[in-house]
Amino acid sequence: MRTLTALVLTAALASGCQSTEEALITSSTQVVVTGPAASAIAGDMASRLAERIGPAGTTSIKMENDKTDYATALEAALKALGYTVITNGKVAKDQKPVEISYSLDSFDGQVLGHLGTPSVALGRTYAVTGAGATPSSPLSVMQRN
């Protein structure tokens, strides 16, 4: 009888740990940000990345420029900080560029910016207006080993 009671109690406790498929549903979609908003986000993300990847004079950056306003603004912001930016994929034999990835996604009426390297990933949300974009969250930093 004790075994049956223990089994029923264990089953009851375990069933309380299950969740339904409706628990947390989050989704994000790629968003196109243009003009002043693209420049504001790119400038902020580039300066935050510069704090973590090393000096501009000795570090080059490799990125894919997909010809969006954000990619163009990100390239310009990195160059303005003094980095050599490689967008054509042609790396000299003596160069070891830091390869970056980037994205902008729409989430809960805001724009989520992501900028990553093999060693660090940065993320932040922005409130976008016609005049530009302002950070609406603290900077999220993830260090990778």
Rank of each mutant, 00 (worst) to 15 (best):
T20F: 12
T34N: 14
V111W: 01
A92S: 11
L81R: 09
M45T: 00
E51A: 15
E99R: 11
D105R: 11
E64Q: 13
V33K: 00
A14Q: 11
T84L: 09
G16I: 07
T68K: 06
A40G: 02
D94L: 11
E99P: 08
A56Q: 02
Q95F: 08
M63C: 00
V32L: 10
S39G: 14
T26H: 13
L104F: 08
A42M: 01
Q30E: 14
N65R: 10
V85R: 02
A56T: 10
S60L: 02
N65C: 03
T29N: 13
G43T: 03
K90Y: 13
D44F: 05
A50E: 09
I53Y: 04
I25A: 12
A23R: 15
E64I: 06
P97L: 01
T34I: 13
I100F: 09
L104C: 08
Q110Y: 13
E64K: 08
V32Y: 08
T29V: 12
E64R: 10
D66E: 05
V91R: 02
T87N: 07
Q95I: 00
A23Q: 14
P97C: 03
E22H: 13
N88T: 05
L49M: 04
V91I: 08
K62G: 12
V111E: 04
A92D: 14
T58R: 11
I41W: 02
T34Q: 13
A23P: 09
K79S: 09
F107N: 13
V98I: 12
V33F: 03
A23S: 14
S47R: 09
T68Y: 03
T72D: 13
P97D: 01
M45D: 04
N88Q: 07
A42T: 02
K67L: 14
S106E: 15
T84Y: 07
L49W: 02
S103Q: 12
A14K: 01
G82L: 00
A50T: 03
F107S: 14
N65Y: 01
T20A: 15
D44A: 05
M63K: 05
G35Q: 05
A38P: 06
R48P: 06
D94Y: 10
Y102H: 10
A38M: 06
C17A: 15
S28R: 06
R48Y: 07
T84V: 10
I53N: 03
S103A: 15
T59G: 01
L78N: 06
S27V: 14
E21S: 15
L74Y: 00
A37R: 04
A76H: 01
G35C: 06
G57W: 05
S15D: 08
S106C: 08
D44I: 10
A77W: 04
T72C: 07
A50Q: 04
R48A: 14
E22N: 14
Q110W: 10
G57T: 00
A73F: 00
E75A: 07
G82Q: 05
E75C: 03
S60Y: 06
A38T: 00
T34V: 14
L104I: 07
